[in-house]
């Protein structure tokens, strides 16, 4: 079977799971996680009020679970088991229900994370325009800072690609020097790359523009 012996070896790839928990058993010393009893679950008053306000917006209180998780994540920095338990207590749901929901969505963190978020879009348009290298630079620049950098799927701003969302502020098109500036702006607590913010950019369509617009010209139309 000489031909088979000459086969190139098929490498085994690591499973590549980003998932904590796959390899973990439960802790049998813990009690089952049922709906938390209000008498035993202290919830910060402002968080409770905010969650209750969200619940009031919907015909079914469960609809507020994503807004409530946003609130809890903001309050606690991440969707910690305690944060989830507090939301569960206010919403009268099991913590598991909310864990299930939170883990489905990319913007919720079930692990502790740095304070600031930089999402670098690495989807098709941005990567055609050099996002992969930008992402690496961004990771390097953020090292040692309280900043989480993630390669993100399309953020809906391909017109300014390659781009990033810095704590929710869309900036682009970014060049390879920008990551350093972004980190500096974050550390200084000032608006990030103001001259590249999407919120200030004019529409590309010429008929959409007005003379008194004082923002940034569309990409590729700086001369116009």
């Amino acid at each position: 079977m000489s031909s088979i012996d000459r086969r190139p070896p098929v490498r085994r790839y690591e499973h590549g799971s980003r998932v904590p928990g796959w390899d973990e058993a439960v802790d049998l010393t813990k009690p089952p996680a049922t709906v938390p009893d209000p008498a035993l679950t202290p919830v910060p008053e402002e968080l409770r009020a905010a969650i209750e306000a969200e619940m009031a917006k919907y015909p079914d209180r469960k609809s507020a679970s994503i807004p409530a998780l946003h609130l809890a994540q903001r309050h606690h920095g991440w969707c910690s088991p305690e944060a989830i338990k507090q939301v569960a207590c206010v919403m009268r749901l099991t913590p598991a229900y909310l864990t299930s929901v939170a883990s489905f969505y990319d913007m919720f963190y079930l692990q502790p994370k740095p304070k600031h978020d930089v999402y670098v879009c690495t989807n098709i348009t941005c990567s055609l325009l050099g996002a992969d290298e930008l992402y690496e630079r961004m990771c390097e620049a953020a090292e040692g800072h309280d900043i989480s950098v993630r390669g993100f799927e399309c953020l809906g701003a391909c017109d300014i690609g390659p781009m990033a969302s810095v704590d929710g502020e869309y900036v682009g098109p970014l060049n390879l020097d920008d990551p350093k500036l972004i980190v500096e702006d974050i550390e200084a607590g000032r608006p990030v790359l103001e001259h590249k913010q999407l919120r200030r950019r004019a529409v590309a369509d010429a008929k959409g523009r007005v003379d008194d617009f004082d923002g940034i010209a569309p990409v590729g139309q700086e001369g116009n």
Binding site: V19, A25, V26, P31, P32, A33, A96
Partner: peptide, 14 residues
């Protein structure tokens, strides 16, 4: 990546 589990390592005791 989906997997069957519980909240924060609590056992499924019910």
């Amino acid at each position: 990546h989906t997997f069957v589990g519980t909240h924060d390592g609590h056992p499924y005791v019910a």
